[in-house]
Amino acid sequence: MGREDVLAWVESPLQLIGAAEWAAAHGTAVPVAGRLTAQISETADELLARGARFGELEPYLGIPWSLLARHGHWLVGDGFSGQFRLAAAVLRPRRLTFLDDGGLAVAYADTLLGRRPYARPSVQERGLTTAAAPFAAELVHRRAAARRADLFTAFDLGAERQDALSDRGFGIRHHDFSWTRATAPAAPELGRRVVLGSALPVDGRMLLVDYVRWVRDAAADAAVYLPHRRETAEQLDAVATVPGLRVHRTGLPVELVLAGARGPLDVHTLPSSTTTTLPLVLAGTGVTVHTGRARRSMREAAA
């Protein structure tokens, strides 16, 4: 293998979908290093069944050093990752392309512009993760100056931010999940009203009692609930008590579950990346995405 060979390094199902979209847009097969989780595996199987242009799929724990060392072009799912920072500083890949990591796409763009620290928002960092940040940032900006750093995104970065990135050498290519739409089988019959699960209670950012109250209001006596991949058994048990709510577990990201919808849906969600991704995935179906308000947890209120 040569130093220009591409490898997708992904840590979440949405990042894996981004890798499939990149492969389709560039007409090339992409080997994948995917974090060893059940939903990454299930999402990869589903994407392959839909014709994703993936090469070898290698599960990993930690940093896949040997795979990364054999490839010079990394499709990076999480630019804020401490593991990415360390691997980039040590291995110094020849080319970098950053995929979307949910709603952090805009925050990462601002990080690349030096408008915020190289640190994941709302996370207290320390140790090696912090120490590696300036070395990773130096590498990324060197590659941008040589026109070897790109963003492949479904998010609106804004004209001013995009121009500023371009001025620094970053290439920007937008996608709208066209491959995901084109290859989707008919979606399961879920009914018109769909409630999307959230990990806010798991992260301590919303009290479970307030979360269940939001689900009850969003369900309005009859809805299908699609759980978030990080929901706990306790949270799902609490949600299951909501009258008229049917919990539908798929093991797949909602973008894949709903992509084949043929009729209009009323989707209810708390603030998340789905407010950007689903209108693109469901373009032309008449979808309406309702974004609820997350009440602050006691931890946040006390801060």
Rank of each mutant, 00 (worst) to 15 (best):
A19E: 03
G286K: 02
P227Y: 01
R70Q: 14
D221A: 14
L67R: 12
L99T: 03
W22A: 00
V90P: 07
R161V: 15
T250D: 03
V106T: 10
G244L: 04
T241P: 10
L208M: 13
E138I: 11
A145I: 07
T275R: 15
G2H: 13
V30W: 02
S66A: 13
A145G: 14
R143L: 15
A154P: 10
L196P: 05
R213G: 10
Q124Y: 11
L14G: 11
L99Y: 00
G251D: 01
S41Y: 06
T291V: 15
D100K: 00
L252Y: 05
L14Q: 12
R120K: 12
L16T: 02
T180S: 12
D266Q: 14
G292R: 01
V30Y: 03
G169N: 03
Y60H: 13
V281Y: 09
T241Y: 04
R192S: 09
P227H: 00
E58D: 13
S66V: 12
A137D: 15
R249H: 11
L61G: 15
G127L: 06
A88F: 01
V32D: 02
A145Q: 13
R85C: 04
L151A: 04
F152I: 07
P13M: 00
L256N: 04
T232V: 08
L270K: 04
Y211M: 06
E300I: 04
L245M: 07
R70V: 06
V10S: 02
T183W: 05
T269P: 10
E160V: 14
H71M: 03
V224E: 06
P93N: 05
A182R: 15
G263I: 09
G251S: 01
R147W: 11
V202E: 14
G169Y: 04
D5E: 15
L139F: 13
P253Q: 00
L91F: 10
V247L: 14
D217S: 13
F152V: 08
V10Y: 01
G204T: 13
V123F: 12
T43H: 00
P243F: 03
L68S: 02
E46L: 05
L208G: 05
A240Q: 07
P31W: 07
R143K: 13
S297N: 12
A133R: 01
A187E: 09
R230S: 14
P31Q: 07
G114F: 05
A52M: 04
R193H: 06
A259I: 09
D237N: 11
R216C: 12
P243E: 02
T129C: 04
A294V: 10
E300G: 07
S272I: 07
Q39D: 15
V202S: 08
E58P: 08
L36A: 15
L104Q: 10
P264Y: 07
D163P: 08
V76W: 01
